[in-house]
Amino acid sequence: MLAIVTILVVLTACGKEPVLPKDNRPTIDVIDMSGRTVTIPREINRIYAVGVNGSIIVYTLAPEKLSGLGVLPASGTAKYINEQYHKIPVLGDVEGNSANSETVLKANPDIIISSMMADVDKATTITNADRLQKKLERPVVVIDGRLTNTDKTYEFLGNIMDRKERAKELGDYCAKSLKEIKDMVEKIPAEKLVRVYYAEGPKGLTTDPAGSRHTEVLDFVRGINVAQVQTGLDSVPAGVSLEQVMIWNPDVIITGKGKGHNSGGEFYNYALKEGNWENIKAVKFGQVYEIPAYPFNWFDRPPSVSRVIGIKWLANLLYPDYVTIDIKAEVKEFYAKFFDYNLNDQEVDDILQNAMRK
């Protein structure tokens, strides 16, 4: 029998081009985005991603390579994403204990993708990835799930998945979009910055602080997150009281849609009807907005690549005098590029329902 020889290919999170030897050896070693060296198949055809955000980024690159999903797409999203996505088996989240090892292994993934998030230190990420790899006996590759490194993540995945051209197209769009919005919001004077409360749950009394993976969009566009709270393990939202929100008295409230993926929504209608909220500035002046959520939430849960259109939406919403973009045109471009779906005007309006200034 011929010995299977693994070769070392330095593939860094900085996006350097790997140099693959011209032979037929079946495995290569790569350095993933956490700095771990992982032996993976040279040819990758089946991928299982831990967490929805990983599944989404793989879907935008090569949906045919997904061997399983963590959860079903949210109701109401079917028409925006390829029918092929709906046929992928739902395996659950093995890291979140909604799937068992046997279920995942039955799908026979070549690699498993895990994400490094903004509010988890690298050492913890590495420990978790090593533990999962040992448990499943499949290579676990860590990607960077942080918003500002989305372009680098596309480049990394494009290299190991043999989707370089597609990855460059999407990564370049992300880098350009983040730079354009960053340049605009950096010009906003400090006294013009808007104070924002991110209301989660049906009564709006859970939230996340600045620096969380769940508020990267708000942090990026220089919205002032009024929530001075501590989240729980795995960035679980913090519970707050209505009295505390009244003290914070935000200028704007943003909240998830009731039918969006994992949004825990319905707060939008609750806030407008519940008299106890009427004296909060944002409610009093009609500055409560629902975060667009189809096919995937633009802000959070999951904190996916959809956040790239999310920063355009939120920056324009909070600072229309400084971020002068045609958000409807931007939405059409994003959906065509990332989801291969050409929105009509009515569909754009549906997606942006309750998300725009009157």
Rank of each mutant, 00 (worst) to 15 (best):
L178P: 13
E186D: 12
E200W: 14
T153V: 01
K187Q: 12
K168W: 12
A210C: 11
G211K: 13
C174A: 14
D208N: 13
D219T: 03
H214E: 15
L205R: 15
S177L: 06
V217F: 09
G211T: 10
N159A: 11
E216S: 10
V226D: 10
C174H: 05
E165V: 14
E191I: 00
V221W: 13
G223D: 14
I160W: 06
P202L: 00
Y198M: 14
E216K: 09
K182G: 01
L170K: 06
C174V: 11
R213C: 10
D162W: 06
T207N: 12
V226R: 04
A210F: 14
Y154I: 02
E180L: 02
E155D: 13
R166K: 07
Y173L: 07
N225E: 14
L157C: 01
V226N: 09
F156Q: 03
S177N: 11
Y173N: 08
S177M: 15
R213S: 15
E155L: 14
R163C: 09
E191D: 10
D219I: 02
N159R: 07
L178Q: 12
T153N: 04
R222S: 06
A210D: 13
V217R: 09
K179P: 07
I181E: 07
I160A: 11
T153K: 01
A167D: 11
M161R: 10
K164W: 15
L205S: 12
P189E: 10
Y197K: 03
A199C: 05
Y197E: 07
D183H: 00
P202T: 08
K203T: 15
E186L: 08
V196Q: 04
V196L: 04
A190I: 00
D219F: 05
D162L: 01
M184S: 10
